[in-house]
Amino acid sequence: MHQQQPIAILDSGVGGLTVAKEVMRQLPREKIVYFGDTARTPYGPRSSEEIIQFTREIVDYLIQFSPKMIVIACNTATAAALGVIRSRVAVPVVGVINPGARAAIGRSTTGCIGVIGTEGTIKSRAYDSALRELSPHVEVISETCPLFVPLVEKGNFRSPETYEAVRKSIGHLRKHPIDCLILGCTHYPFLTDTIAEVMGQNVALINSADETAREVSVILQNKRSLTRRDEIPVHQFFCSGDPILFKSIAQQWLGEQIELTPVIWQVPNIV
């Protein structure tokens, strides 16, 4: 594995930018190739077969860049396709569910953890399995939030409409003794302020991006594959849908991370 090869990050849309931002922060010399499938988002209501097909198509596209690692920065795709992708490629493949579960177990003191996610992620019970593997007696309270991803994909992070959607979706979770709430979709950190307002200050919000980036770093370090170059990397960002909206949201979210680093924006044709 060549140290100068990029890290490939994929998502159903803009949500994976939360992971990309954290990888950039923790590993500033690593080049990133990002693909957001904004034309086919959201993945949550889709069948497992569709999600696996879409994820395979994106990975097949990203392989041309010879990545040294692939990060599936989408909880729904991680739940449905992680094993399939690992069997298809020769490089390490990291998902976002196990890192998020580890972070929550390490933070919780009550042993009651909430998980919010897309229909596909919650139905898969992937977080339940990951959490109970780490702590068999943990209580898991799960809720689907189908309204969240469309809001984020439109760039609607803070508005009365957003607050009302969050309140209706998860306000009832406050009756449970949860002290940690896993944001089980990488789109949801865009709504952190509103979710925190609805849930209250006694509930810690768990964003798997930090832990996922840490896992990427550990794996590459163990394989002696961290880049040793001194020059600033040039990242590449692809989306399958509206490039203007995608670029606007990405620039807003990544902020100073891309002010210091050149970025190439492209719209591929993968289907």
Results as ranks from 00 to 15, higher is better:
43 Y>H: 08
43 Y>A: 11
43 Y>E: 08
43 Y>I: 12
43 Y>F: 13
44 G>E: 03
44 G>K: 04
44 G>Q: 07
44 G>W: 06
44 G>P: 07
45 P>R: 13
46 R>W: 01
46 R>Q: 12
46 R>G: 01
46 R>S: 03
47 S>P: 05
47 S>D: 04
47 S>G: 11
48 S>N: 13
48 S>Y: 06
49 E>F: 03
49 E>Y: 09
49 E>G: 03
49 E>N: 10
49 E>C: 02
50 E>H: 12
50 E>Y: 13
50 E>D: 13
50 E>C: 00
50 E>R: 09
50 E>M: 13
51 I>L: 09
51 I>Y: 07
51 I>V: 15
51 I>F: 00
52 I>Y: 01
52 I>H: 02
52 I>R: 14
52 I>Q: 11
52 I>M: 02
53 Q>T: 13
53 Q>W: 11
53 Q>V: 03
53 Q>P: 00
53 Q>C: 02
53 Q>L: 12
53 Q>I: 10
54 F>Y: 15
54 F>C: 00
54 F>E: 02
55 T>L: 08
55 T>N: 11
55 T>K: 05
55 T>F: 06
56 R>I: 14
56 R>N: 09
56 R>Q: 14
56 R>D: 09
57 E>S: 14
57 E>Y: 08
58 I>P: 00
58 I>D: 04
58 I>K: 05
58 I>V: 15
58 I>N: 01
58 I>L: 07
58 I>S: 05
59 V>K: 05
59 V>N: 03
59 V>M: 08
59 V>Q: 06
59 V>F: 06
59 V>T: 15
59 V>A: 11
60 D>K: 14
60 D>C: 14
60 D>R: 14
60 D>G: 12
61 Y>G: 01
61 Y>R: 08
61 Y>A: 09
61 Y>Q: 09
61 Y>H: 14
62 L>Y: 05
62 L>Q: 06
62 L>C: 09
62 L>V: 10
62 L>P: 02
63 I>M: 15
63 I>P: 00
63 I>T: 15
63 I>D: 02
63 I>V: 15
63 I>Q: 13
63 I>E: 13
64 Q>A: 09
64 Q>M: 07
64 Q>L: 03
64 Q>G: 02
64 Q>F: 06
64 Q>Y: 03
65 F>A: 07
65 F>N: 10
65 F>D: 10
65 F>S: 06
65 F>V: 10
65 F>Q: 01
65 F>I: 07
65 F>W: 11
66 S>P: 02
66 S>A: 14
66 S>V: 00
67 P>C: 06
67 P>G: 11
67 P>D: 07
67 P>W: 05
68 K>P: 08
68 K>E: 05
68 K>S: 01
68 K>T: 05
68 K>W: 09
68 K>Q: 09
69 M>H: 03
69 M>A: 12
69 M>G: 08
69 M>S: 02
69 M>V: 10
70 I>S: 01
70 I>K: 00
70 I>W: 05
70 I>L: 04
71 V>S: 02
71 V>Y: 06
71 V>P: 01
71 V>D: 01
72 I>V: 14
72 I>R: 05
72 I>L: 12
72 I>F: 05
72 I>T: 08
